[in-house]
Computed example of a mutant assay.
Amino acid sequence: MVNRRTLLIGCLSIVIAIGVGSIFLPVHSLIDEQNHDSHSHGAKGDEDSRHQNTLVFPIPPPSDYDLPLIRAGWTLFRDKGLSSNNSVSCESCHNLQTNGAEITPVSVGVGGAGSRNALTVFNAALNYRFFWDGRTNSLKKQMDGPVHAPLEMASSWPLIVAYVASKPEYETLFDDADILPISAASIQYALVAFQESLLTPNAPFDRYLNGDQYAINSPAKQGWMAFQRLGCINCHQGQNIGGSLMQRFGYYGNDTRDKTQAKNIDMGRFQVTENDADKYLFRVASLRNVAETPPYFHDGRTNSLEEAIKIMANIQIGQSLEQSVISDLSAFLHALSAPRPQILEILERE
C-alpha cells in the first residue's frame, strides 16, 4: 500500500513539474521546435511562427469616425493657447506631421527643458499605463500631467475652459460635435476622442500576423523569432507591443544602479510613489513605429535603433548579441512601422 502511494505521489510530482515547466519559460523550446518545423515544412512553418504566440496582436482597421468630435479634439491638440504663455500645444511635443513624438532627447515646455523623452501619441489609446513612470492608466487622467506641470503647459483646467469659451470658433466646433457647453469635461472628451483615433494599423508585421507570409522578409522573420527566444516578448506584448507593464530598467550593469550618482539619475516610478520597491521602474515602451521614433529610452540617450537593441540586451538580459541577431531584430522592428494615422489625412484635406 505504501509503495503504491509512493508511486502515485511520484507520478503526480512529475506531471506537476512538467505542467509548471510548460507554463513558465515556454518560449525558447517552442522557438527551437518552430525553427525546425519551418525548415521542414515550408509555409506550414511560417503559419506556426505567426500563430504560436498569442501575446502579440495586429491593430485592426479603424471603425467609423465621429468626425465632428475628432475635429474639435484635433483643433484643441494643436492650439498653443491652452498653455499659460500661448507658446506650447500638445503637438509641440507630439508632432502629428512625423511620428507623434519629437526628435529631441527631452521635451521643452513653458518652463524650459524637462528630464524625459516624449513618447509618441500614435497608438497611445492601446496603452494601459501612461508616462514613463506609469502614474496613470487612462488618456483622460494622463492629460492632467502636462496641463499642470510647470515645465510643460503650466496651466489649469479653469484657465483652459475660459480660453476655449472665449473663442467663437470653438463654440461652433463644440456645437457641431454636440458636446456643449464648453467645460473641462467636454474639452477632455474631445481630446480623448482625437487621441483614440490615432491608430496605425496595416504595418507589414500586422499583415504577416494576418496571414500574408510575404509581408515581411526573411531577416524580419528571423528577428521575430529572436524577439521571442530572447524573452523580449515577455515585456513588449499586446496590440501595442508594449505600453502596459512596468519593469526595472537595468538588471545587469546599468548605470542607474550606481548609488554614487543617485542624485543625477532618474529613479522612474519612485519619483511618484517614494516607495523603495519602485526605484528604477519604468513603463515598457510600445515598439509600434519604433524605427521612426528616435531618440530612445526615457532620457533619449541614443538615436540609433541598433544601439538601443544592444543596450537593452546588455542591461535587461545580460547578453552581448552577435551583429547578425541585432540586424535581424532591427529588421523585425522596422516591420512594425505603419503609415501615419488615416484620420490625420482626412482632417488635413478639409
Rank of each mutant, 00 (worst) to 15 (best):
F131W: 09
T120P: 07
A185C: 00
V121P: 00
H236L: 04
S197Q: 00
T75M: 06
I216E: 02
E292N: 14
E350Y: 07
W224S: 15
E196F: 00
N99Q: 13
H39D: 15
Q188K: 04
I31Q: 13
I9V: 14
W157Y: 11
Y214D: 14
P62H: 07
Q222K: 14
H298E: 06
Q323R: 08
N35Q: 13
I103H: 12
A101F: 02
R248L: 07
P60E: 15
A285Y: 02
K80G: 12
K141W: 04
Q247M: 15
T273S: 14
Q319M: 15
W157P: 11
P181N: 07
V272K: 12
G231D: 07
C90H: 01
T293L: 08
T104N: 15
G145I: 09
A308Y: 01
L336R: 00
M225A: 14
A17V: 14
P201R: 03
T75V: 09
N35P: 07
I309R: 12
G114V: 02
S38L: 14
A226V: 01
T136M: 08
Q319P: 01
N202V: 03
I326W: 08
G318R: 02
H236I: 05
V161N: 04
W224T: 12
T6L: 13
I317E: 06
S166Q: 11
H148R: 12
T273L: 09
T302D: 13
A101N: 10
K310P: 04
F270S: 06
L82F: 00
P62E: 06
T98L: 09
K263D: 15
A124V: 08
I23M: 08
F282C: 03
T54R: 13
L119V: 11
I241S: 05
R71V: 06
N95D: 15
I14G: 13
N127F: 05
A226L: 10
G223T: 04
G242M: 14
R248W: 01
Q222Y: 07
E171G: 15
R283P: 04
E152I: 05
Y128E: 14
I265R: 13
S183I: 01
T273F: 05
D79Y: 06
N95M: 11
S63W: 03
E102I: 10
A118C: 10
I18F: 09
A17S: 11
G223L: 05
P168R: 05
M312S: 13
Q239G: 02
N240I: 01
C11I: 15
